[in-house]
């Protein structure tokens, strides 16, 4: 089983998303393209960048990236390795992160996890589709570890 942040790990979540169907349909479609960046102690990426794209109710793409700009993401979600690990561990335990540890909460404070974007209008898609993004990550509770 591939581990976070391997594109295959996200692809597995994508399959769960399609199997869920109704939950994501009820949340409404999401059209958004973004990058996941896992950062180490000295602020360098410690894993290859992954580009993700939702085109409605499904994950259309999960690819390893050499060049973020060529992927033209709406935003990049940057987070330190222990923060991602903590979030995924909490999801594995309770089906969702603890209060103040959701994607949105962490990005609001901005020191453990933050967004990068060249255009605030595009960055705002993180908020427009936030429930979909959070539920997508919450599906990881169902991955065998």
């Amino acid at each position: 089983m591939a581990a976070f942040p391997d594109p295959q790990w996200f692809a597995a979540l994508g399959r769960l998303m399609e199997a869920e169907g109704e939950l994501f349909r009820r949340l409404g479609y999401a059209e958004v393209r973004f990058v996941i960046k896992v950062i180490g102690e000295n602020d360098d990426p410690v894993a290859p960048l992954v580009g993700l794209e939702f085109d409605g109710y499904r994950l259309a793409r999960a690819v390893q990236l050499d060049d973020t700009a060529a992927f033209d993401p709406d935003f990049v979600i940057c987070g330190r390795r222990p923060v991602w690990d903590r979030m995924l561990a909490e999801i594995a335990r309770g089906g969702r992160p603890e209060l103040r540890h959701t994607l949105s909460s962490l990005a609001l404070v901005g020191d453990e996890l933050w967004l990068e974007s060249t255009d605030q209008l595009r960055e705002d898609k993180f908020f427009r589709f936030n429930q979909t993004l959070q539920e997508f990550f919450n599906l990881s509770a169902r991955l065998s570890r």
């Binding site: 959701t102 949105s104 705002d124 898609k125 908020f127 427009r128 589709f129 936030n130 429930q131 959070q134």
Partner: peptide, 11 residues
């Protein structure tokens, strides 16, 4: 969270 999604469309 849900209100936030709506609000970002208005913005």
């Amino acid at each position: 969270r849900r209100c936030m999604q709506d609000e970002s469309r208005h913005v």
